[in-house]
Design a protein around this nucleic acid. Structure first.
Lengths: 205, 205
DNA sequence: TGTACATCAGTGAACGCGCGTTCACTGATGTAC
DNA sequence: TGTACATCAGTGAACGCGCGTTCACTGATGTAC
């Protein structure tokens, strides 16, 4: 890991890391290849030894995000143990924890506006992380009486939408800035009410 | 409305309109003062007769969005008639309709990352549109037994979060691109399940 | 109705800047002998 | 262990570009008389 000297040693990852920091505080469109290079201690031209260009660098940041994301969610889901319900709720909390702890990744993944097909590697990673979400929804949906069971992909979409909305509106600075509740509590309560609506939680408190 | 000749006639609004179109397809950070001016048929310097600068122009676009938004939501809520529930659901649909029909406004309001205090006018308009949402939630929450009633601001936050999430993830191009359901249906079903969880809808289908 | 004039909306040129990308190059590294 | 050499990661200068903002100006408009 010799970072000193003429050759950087691990420039590719250093560039991704610098990009993530920049994306975190300027947004994906405010991110600049030149600045990422500078923060990695390198000339902008050096970036082209490792990436095709600006977009390719963002795509790699997003790809790494999907990998981390899928791992975290998968671990939280824990194969559906100790119960489908508990596993599902843990997955919801893991979602928010990821958004909080990896804001640069989160933004690169969901706010960069780059096509999921920007690179094949990105597409594969995104597909994997979506699959983890849907698997959790499927496991849980087996506990719903078949006649009132929505398609698992629908209710994973609901939970995803609510989670994403909480992140965007209440877990960041603007614009619902003076968030009336801690985002974690807000999301947990929301998911609880939603699951009660599906008959997965008892109707009383 | 004399648009020909040396003096434009209504340049201020023409600039806002041009900005909205640009924001719609390039995002708020991709938006450019120079390009807005060009599309309005005017030199970039002319913008400074009407706005303090780039940020002020975006803030005005967001302000107008909040005005339209509050009007639409207020009209859909219709004073809580014919029933608190019906009015609430109509408000939810109006949210999505607004995001669909005024994407530039929506982005300027919720994705521009500009502080709600960018201008006093913007702050006032944003406060008004939030108040409309909370009023609808309050009216509905009166139908919930007090002991299981969440704070109205909490459940308006839940609905807002789910609506925003659906807009961002499923009503646009990326990244949940191949949306499995029409966003309208997805949101309506999600809100329905949520309200059932609050005991506001009968538990059976 | 006609003329003089003040107003002020928009012009056009200029500024300094940072961007993404290209190119010929250089010199540190690691391998072959 | 020592030397020759191929590789290739990173340099630094240059490119053309569009950005936001400023400035002195110009000329269309509308009012006063």
């Amino acid at each position: 890991m010799g970072k000193r000297g003429y050759h950087h040693g691990n420039l590719r990852q250093a560039l991704v890391d610098a990009a993530l920091v920049l994306i975190e505080d300027k947004g994906p469109t405010g991110f600049t290849l030149s600045e990422a290079a500078k923060n990695a201690g390198v000339t902008p031209a050096a970036v082209y030894r490792h990436f095709e260009g600006r977009e390719d660098l963002i795509a790699e940041a997003a790809r790494q995000g999907h990998e981390i994301f899928a791992d975290l969610m998968d671990h939280a889901f824990n194969g559906g143990n100790p119960s489908a319900l508990a596993a599902f709720e843990a997955t919801g909390r893991a979602y928010l924890a990821f958004a909080r702890q990896h804001p640069g990744h989160y933004m690169a993944m969901f706010e960069s506006g780059l096509s999921a097909n920007a690179s094949p590697e990105l597409a594969a990673a995104a597909a994997r992380s979506r699959a983890v979400l849907e698997r959790a929804a499927e496991a849980l949906s087996e506990h719903i009486p078949p006649e009132k069971r929505p398609p698992p992909s629908m209710f994973s979409a609901h939970i995803w939408a609510m989670s994403h909305g909480v992140v965007e509106l209440f877990a960041r600075g603007a614009p619902g800035s003076q968030s009336p509740f801690p985002p974690e509590d807000l999301l947990e309560a929301g998911i609880g009410i939603y699951l009660r609506g599906l008959g997965l939680l008892p109707p009383d408190q």
